[in-house]
Design a binder for these strands. Structure first.
Lengths: 350, 350
DNA sequence: TTGAAAGCGCTAACAG
DNA sequence: CTGTTAGCGCTTTCAA
């Protein structure tokens, strides 16, 4: 039972008066075929609407294809850890296609680690690659090499304009900032807003939070032009300092109640905020990390915008597998995923 | 490349000193095997961690499995129409597993049509069934027959407690009502709420909106006990009457601004509401029908709660296919899907 | 350039 | 009850 037809390679061999072998050669254009035969075969294939049977192919070639994942290493409870569940589902889904996945993770704060991992990955000669591009230049040279080797790749989380990526899965960054602002301010007369940012040593060149912030600020400018927006920088690895910074800020600006963060780290603010329940803060952030959800359920975080990293990898792997094995092109190149809004009442079944 | 191992049926035949045929028999326990052989084979299978190669199986048996869908017929732009896109994706996903889907749709307002369709479906002897149960009694007798025939089935949208369903995909109804209330009333001092309901001739015995309403009312009782909740009934097929009913209601209760609907028909209120922009209504409803989304984007509808009927069928079909072909039991029996919150700023990429 | 043939792992029919 | 065998449709040598 071929996909939709019952025309087999043998059928078209008989019709053309050639042999299975020759037909197979033109099918995979591996040369060694006279122009005449080639065209005869092509004609019949088209005419009869021949569709290869993937099972027979898989069975015969007996080898598995491998998809390499180039992702930031995920320590438990961090953003990239969320992707893991999607990876598991994806693995199960593509297994019957004879596809395996291999992880190549790098330290997202270390460009050298990224470059090393790229090289390592390349040496393994995978049949497809999923990339979360963190460093622009490095990624570009990497994808250039992939193209040269004819290895298809798909972006997740954010994308670069490399033209020949197979697909992209992620949320629209700018819009997510817009949405964030609306969720923070709708139905209230807001006069002051605080944005808390992460102080980073490195310059993350392909940072989705940049666009996100732009979207947020544009919303404010458009809808609440006389609202004051202030920024604060914290160090994710220093809780004491974070507390001190916040303490000082609210000493100076006690009127501020609305707080936004554009990354997955809103949980860092939670200890401080929970020590000041009298302030009735409105905190909004991104991503359904366990710590964030916990704070959401307790009511400290008002809302979270979820990006579905799990669905992103799942989509990426699935798309890549179908392309590699069945030669099926993705329906859409850019797959903007839905931005999910989480409140304490719908976060449970997540 | 068997799924994960390289143990074949031949290997275990050799080890046990039996033949492929016998091994195959115990594998599919189609009897005709001595207890002794049976156990010997089972032991080796377990020990060696034998995993059948689905491609070889599919190739050999050459027949496709079929999954029947028993869903309300979907006219364009209605709730069940949303499921279609998920069905397409599901079809693509299970095609390499050699699984095809067949639609059996019925008139959701006509129990007889439901019963007839059930019979028809049964006669086609599918290998698995996906059901959206609309009529309780009828569904029960139907699933009883399925069980008798050994045909696995999965529920979507809502479920009955039949014990032997393979899986369920849907949202938690009660909670969805709770969520709905919170989204309608949070951050505001609400004194009056209107619930608009559909006047139905038939008694829909398995109606998810019943539980949904319960959740809504419980929230109100718990959080805003002194808020007055009123109900109104409209006829979905009579726009003029709907307008008149609303007109009369707001004549009598001009203070009401908050409106909730527990089904996918909020778009029915839109014409009236848009004729009264001065009232600044807060309207919340369910499901991302095109008409609802349009009203959401225009700002007439404040928020929608989406149920992902597409993901529900996709999950159902996928689960069923893996069960039928690979004998893989679903990871979870009850799959409560996430309730998605849609506002004008995140509805676009839906 | 092309054809023939030997599998890939499993199913199912048939002969014992 | 059990073994044998002929495929399923495709890939891949190896000869010709």
């Amino acid at each position: 039972m071929a996909p939709s037809s019952k025309v087999t390679i043998l059928d078209i061999a008989r019709i053309t008066g050639l042999s299975k072998g020759t037909v197979d050669r033109v099918l995979h254009n591996r040369g060694e075929v006279s122009k005449k035969s080639y065209e005869k075969v092509m004609a019949v294939i088209r005419e009869k609407g021949y569709q290869p049977n993937p099972h027979a192919a898989l069975l015969a070639k007996g080898k598995e294809k491998v998809i390499a994942l180039l992702l930031p290493s995920h320590t438990k409870g961090t953003y990239w850890d969320l992707a893991t569940s999607g990876l598991c589902r994806a693995e199960a889904e593509v297994e019957p296609l004879g596809v395996r996945t291999v992880n190549f993770s790098y330290d997202q704060y270390n460009p050298l680690s990224f470059r090393d991992t790229c090289r390592e990955l390349l040496e393994s000669r995978p049949h497809g690659v999923v990339i979360a591009p963190m460093y622009k230049e490095e990624t570009l040279s990497f994808t250039a090499q992939l193209s040269e080797l004819g290895i298809p790749y798909v972006f997740i989380d954010s994308k670069l304009d490399t033209e020949d990526y197979l697909a992209y899965f992620g949320i629209p960054s700018y819009k997510s900032g817009f949405l964030c602002a609306d969720m923070l301010c709708r139905r209230e007369k807001v006069t002051d807003v605080l944005i808390v940012r992460i102080r980073r040593d490195k310059h993350q060149q392909s940072d989705p939070t940049v666009e996100r912030r732009a979207g947020f600020l544009d919303y404010m400018r458009e809808h609440i032009p006389d609202c004051t927006v202030r920024s604060l920088f914290i160090d994710p690895s220093d809780a004491a300092e974070t507390d001190a910074v916040l303490e000082a800020f609210f000493q100076e600006f006690p009127q501020v109640r609305h707080i936004a963060m554009f990354n997955s780290r809103v949980h860092l603010l939670v200890p401080f905020l929970e020590r000041h329940p009298e302030k009735d803060f409105r905190l909004i952030g991104f991503d359904n990390l366990e710590a964030n959800i916990a704070a959401l359920v307790r009511g400290t975080v008002d809302m979270l915008i979820a990006q579905h990293p799990d669905e992103q990898v799942r989509g990426a792997v699935q798309t890549l597998a179908e392309y590699i094995v069945l030669h099926r092109k993705p329906a859409r190149k850019d797959n903007f995923m839905h931005m999910d809004l989480l409140t304490r009442y719908n976060a449970e079944d997540y």
